[in-house]
Each structure stands twice: as C-alpha cells, then as structure tokens.
Amino acid sequence: MRLTPLLLLSCLVPMSTAVFAAAPAPEIQRPVGTPQAIGAVHTLRAIPEACARLEGVFTGEAATPYKYTAVRTDPQCQPRARFVDYAKAQPSEAKGWKLNDVIRVPAAACPKQQAVVRVWRKPADNKPVLDGQGSARVYLEDAKKDAAAGKPLPAVTLYAAEMKVEGKGCAG
C-alpha cells in the first residue's frame, strides 16, 4: 500500500495536536520580552497581590547563565497571596494549579538564548463572607479567639515560578 502525501499528513495532524494539547496555554498572553544585557537586572513581572516582583539577570556564566529571584515590593504591603517555592509546590493542573504566565527574555549578546519563566497560580476560594449590610467585616476579638483555638487561616492564592534557559549559548 502506498501512502499519498495527503493521507500521511492526515495521520500526522491528530498526533501533533495531541502533543501540543498536553502543554496548557497560559492565562496571560505576552510577546517575547526586550533583549537584556549581561549584568542588567530587570523586572520580569510584578505580582501585586503577593507583594512580590520577579527580577532576573543574565550572568554571563556558562553554568548558570540566568538567575531570577522574587523580591518583596514594599515592607508595608499586606499580601493577599503567597509566592511559594516551585520545587516544594510542584505545581500541575492535576493539583489545581493554572499556568498563569510564560515570560521569555532573550539575551542581548546571544538572541538564540532565552530565559523562560513559567508562573503558576493556585487560586483559593477566599471570598469574604458578607454581612447583612453587604460588607465584609473582620473583628479583631473574633480573629484572636480563632487564632487561640488553633483554627486554620483562610486559604490564599499561591504563586510559584520555574525558570529554564532555552536555546544554545553563543560561543564567546
């Protein structure tokens, strides 16, 4: 039996869509970032509800060409979400996490190389209970009693991020 190109293509299309379907689409769609120079610290993304900002830098080192860190935005900020360690959280859709953002930043000295930061979000049902007047109220004495009784705190949205360098480095 001889396979025609059209028949061969019709067999490959379902397989390729199955491969691409495995990778979830991020909630936020963004273009590739501005190329960054070695040693230039840059903001990848702010997460205001977690009082955090993700910063990155190309190091110029072969072993670790890019580093990123979560930085607290303001000591006075009261977070409504938490940024957690990716390795400990091991986010996945099966665990209730959503791929929130994919940030791609090319190296200015080597555009074939990109830092790719994937930000995951685990939403929490932390909608406040409204009283008869339609307001959410937290009473200090009640909160103190709950804390003394060992009641768990309400769940908050969690964020985690992983970083990988993709593409080949340029010979220098």
Rank of each mutant, 00 (worst) to 15 (best):
P31W: 06
T34I: 15
P35Q: 08
Q36P: 02
Q36R: 11
G39P: 00
G39C: 03
H42D: 04
L44D: 00
A46N: 14
A46V: 10
P48R: 05
A50Q: 14
A50N: 07
C51H: 04
A52M: 13
R53C: 01
R53L: 12
L54M: 05
L54V: 00
E55A: 07
G56D: 04
V57R: 13
V57T: 12
V57Y: 10
V57F: 06
E61R: 12
A62V: 09
A63K: 11
T64Q: 02
P65G: 00
Y66W: 06
Y66V: 02
K67Q: 11
Y68H: 10
D74H: 05
P75N: 08
P75R: 13
Q76Y: 08
Q76P: 00
C77F: 10
C77Y: 11
C77P: 04
Q78T: 07
Q78S: 09
Q78I: 11
P79D: 12
R80C: 05
A81N: 05
R82T: 14
F83Q: 14
F83R: 01
V84H: 07
Y86N: 15
Y86F: 15
A87L: 06
K88N: 03
A89V: 03
P91A: 09
S92C: 07
S92I: 07
E93F: 08
E93S: 15
A94Y: 11
K95S: 11
K95Q: 09
K95Y: 05
K95G: 04
G96Q: 13
G96K: 15
K98C: 06
V102H: 00
V102A: 04
I103H: 01
I103L: 04
R104W: 03
P106K: 01
P106V: 02
A107I: 02
C110K: 04
P111L: 06
Q114T: 02
V116L: 12
R118C: 09
R118Q: 09
R118S: 14
P123V: 12
A124P: 00
A124W: 01
D125G: 12
K127L: 05
P128G: 09
V129I: 06
V129P: 03
G132R: 08
Q133D: 13
Q133P: 04
Q133L: 10
G134I: 11
G134E: 09
S135L: 08
A136H: 10
V138C: 01
Y139N: 07
L140K: 09
L140W: 12
E141S: 15
E141Y: 07
A143D: 04
K144L: 15
K145G: 02
K145I: 10
D146C: 08
D146L: 10
D146N: 12
A147V: 08
A147Q: 09
A148M: 10
A148V: 13
G150T: 11
K151W: 07
P152T: 07
P154N: 11
A155V: 03
T157L: 05
L158N: 13
A161Q: 01
E162V: 07
M163T: 03
M163Q: 03
